[in-house]
Design a binder for these strands. Sequence first.
DNA 1: GCCTGTGAATCCATTCACAGCT
DNA 2: AGCTGTGAATGGATTCACAGGC
Lengths: 211, 211
Amino acid sequence: MNTETKIPNPTIERLAFYSRPLEVLLKGRIPVVSSEKLAGLCSVNPAQVRKDLAYFGEFGVRGVGYDVRELLMEIKKILGTDHAWNLCIVGMGNLGKALVENENFKSRGYRFLAAFDNSPQRAGERLPCGLIIQSARKIAELVKALSIEIGVIATAPRNAQRTADMLTRAGVKAILNFAPTQLRTQDRCAVENVDFTVKLENLAYHLAKEE
Amino acid sequence: MNTETKIPNPTIERLAFYSRPLEVLLKGRIPVVSSEKLAGLCSVNPAQVRKDLAYFGEFGVRGVGYDVRELLMEIKKILGTDHAWNLCIVGMGNLGKALVENENFKSRGYRFLAAFDNSPQRAGERLPCGLIIQSARKIAELVKALSIEIGVIATAPRNAQRTADMLTRAGVKAILNFAPTQLRTQDRCAVENVDFTVKLENLAYHLAKEE
DNA sequence: GCCTGTGAATCCATTCACAGCT
DNA sequence: AGCTGTGAATGGATTCACAGGC
């Protein structure tokens, strides 16, 4: 099944998910994995794994399973993580600083090429990673000059929308938003929200339920 | 519709979502809101808003709408955010440090009562918020002593599972996991994952798709 | 015998459309 | 007249179950 079917969003989310245990298996020199094994490692249904992969091609061998290295490569190709992406980040408070240095970004080929903040006392500061914090006024200029594709928003909630506007106008194609606000963008720009207070409230709900 | 129907998970996620614009409306002294207005602010369907709320009671007035203050209170009661929760955090790298100080946690009544790290050179350090980093060996003792209900994991991926085990054994009822690993816990303990690399890969996929 | 790939069946969530209250 | 609350209809995604290839 390789025709131009619409791919469900949960599928591509899980693809990213599958890649993590696959990396572990690869390091452990395990050559082959079955859908059942992989599903177990991700706590999903084996049929789900097979169906997800089948959207993109026939990567397995019947009676055997999937070649770990090959499958991982295919997933990376699908997700576009087979090459690096250029990021910038806006809002260099504690969270922003933690994100630029974050190992999980680096190890997966996401590189921060610029860091912005609109408070004058932060501009000019040199970060441990070597970047120097730029005034937010420079967003338009630097996004273009450095061909930045993805913008990360780590500002206070009240500045998030304004920041998103600046980023999209500068030509960024996607935004990862850490502010707990619903952003409005023209649909040329994809947005993903990372909102940990929502997750916490989820937990609180389940706890409150059992008194 | 108030009987013991199973509540869909997306519903309770959206409830947290609705509360944000409601807080803004409350501050702006807007007394009443319609499902259509609220839906617009959250980019969802108005019928969705009504159905979500109807799971928990009849909070609206036909022909009028919802009383903002009352609705917000009801949602908080449902989510269990009408009272504070006790948290601890494990893993005091950049991300951990950023999270303990984070405004969004504080403003919603989540308070960090303890911070742990298993590297000896970090233990003893005093954080800006006043907490002193404790050795991870003290988890069992302090979780009990401080009646900590929710544990936050901000360790390196390879330590996440071990940390989760310690936390659950210590009696924590829920875990918010920032490490990009699938945790295995006994089902007495709820887990929510905040995985921003998955979100980024999502964005990468959509960008890669349009060359 | 084993494990993939996939139509069919099931399950779950969203949206529609309207009856019912103010 | 206006907006909620909700059964019914739709639309998606997950799971089942088995045919097909190693």
